[in-house]
């Protein structure tokens, strides 16, 4: 394994990662559809993945890339759970609106 990523280019990739992460955050708190909300967390995970791989290249080791494998696995697990939950919720209230769940408060 070879050419480490230069500081300049590294920050380019990290920048993309950060932007994806930030857009995911914004989507999470603005979109009311539960499915889209969770899609937005996946967007954040994308930001993390890109950052991890570029840092892995920069540091010349592979820990970042192996980390990505686990991130993907957990993303899949969380997605499975989230979708199961969404199905459950949808059956009861026939809506995917996240703001509809606000009985508990105060």
């Amino acid at each position: 394994m070879s050419t480490p990523l230069s500081g300049m280019l590294l920050s380019h990739f990290l920048m993309t990662g950060a932007i994806l992460f930030g857009l995911g955050l914004i989507g999470f708190v603005t979109r009311r559809n539960l499915i889209i909300m969770f899609l937005c967390t996946e967007l954040m995970f994308q930001g993390v993945v890109i950052s991890l791989v570029s840092l892995s290249l920069h540091h010349g080791n592979f820990e970042g890339q192996t980390f990505v494998i686990f991130v993907l696995t957990i993303a899949a697990a969380e997605a499975a759970l989230a979708l199961g939950l969404v199905v459950l919720l949808y059956r009861g209230r026939k809506t995917l609106d996240g703001t509809a769940w606000a009985l508990l408060r105060g």
Binding site: L25, F28, V29, T30, R32, G98, T99, W101, A102, L103, L104, R105, G106
Partner: peptide
């Protein structure tokens, strides 16, 4: 502090953020 506990998921997310 109480209004922060509005009960809405998105409100919590936004406050946390």
């Amino acid at each position: 502090a109480r209004p922060s506990q509005s009960g809405v998921l998105h409100g919590y997310g936004l406050s946390m953020l």
